[in-house]
Simulated scan of single mutants.
Amino acid sequence: MSKGLSEDLTELTHLRQLVERARRLTASATPARRRLLGIAGPPGSGKSTLAARLVAELAGAAVLVPMDGFHLAEAELRRLGRTDRKGAPDTFDAAGYAALLARLRSPAPDTTVYAPAFDRRVEEPVAGSVPVAPDVPLVVTEGNYLLLDNPPWTDARACLDEVWYVDLDDAERVRRLVDRHERFGKARAHAERFVRTSDEVNARLVTAGRERADLVVRFAPDAAPEPYGGA
């Protein structure tokens, strides 16, 4: 596993190279050792879309397990007084996420592992949503904090064979974030305020981990696919 940036690729021109790189990870898996690929990047960068595209291209050889399934429930965020900072590192069950990745890394024969997902229609995690069969050689996981340099996020990073960082021009990324919040029911002014006071605070934390990625995928504004609903 490399520690520095090995190459810069744009999704528009080199999606095939990204798929082939993921396919090489898949080919190196064994029945006792599944491969795990992480896709990191700030909110709105397109990492969810890229992760979904990779899994679709690998056609049954990979499953997408999003970090967002480990969001704390709204009731718990209210108890903690953290509803206005939903999406910050401490609003996830990071230890639970790391434990799931460790379990996925070493599949047990004849045992399907069920991972949670996140339903943006109700803004809540949903347990048991993503089945990962024991013969699936690659898990792709995506989320903001895969490169955060403090535990328990470092425990999650230790389970991943590679982490790619998805880059996108900040102005375009913020525009997409505001539009996404509107699509999921926030008024425009509320969406802009949430992006400014929450999403962009989180983005600065995420950006600090860019140099720890194995690969940077650099999107041009007119080439990056619109985020379909993930971070």
Rank of each mutant, 00 (worst) to 15 (best):
D8H: 14
L12H: 13
L18D: 03
R23A: 14
R35Y: 02
L37D: 03
G38T: 09
A40I: 07
G41D: 05
P42S: 15
P42I: 03
G44A: 10
T49L: 02
V55R: 02
V55Q: 02
E57V: 05
L58S: 06
A59H: 11
A62L: 05
D68H: 04
H71A: 03
E74M: 07
E74Y: 07
E76Y: 08
E76N: 04
L77R: 11
R78F: 10
G81D: 13
R82L: 15
T91Q: 09
F92P: 00
A95F: 02
A95S: 12
G96V: 00
A98Q: 05
A99H: 09
L100F: 03
L101S: 02
A102Y: 06
R105M: 07
A108K: 15
P109Q: 13
P109C: 12
P109D: 14
P116W: 03
D119Q: 05
P125C: 08
V130I: 15
P131V: 07
V132T: 06
V139N: 00
T141V: 06
E142V: 06
A156V: 01
V166K: 03
D170P: 13
L177R: 12
R180V: 08
H181Y: 11
F184P: 01
G185H: 10
A187K: 10
R196Y: 02
V201P: 00
V201Q: 07
R204I: 01
D214E: 08
D214I: 03
L215W: 04
L215I: 09
V217A: 08
V217Q: 04
P221C: 10
D222N: 10
G229E: 07
G229L: 08
A231I: 04
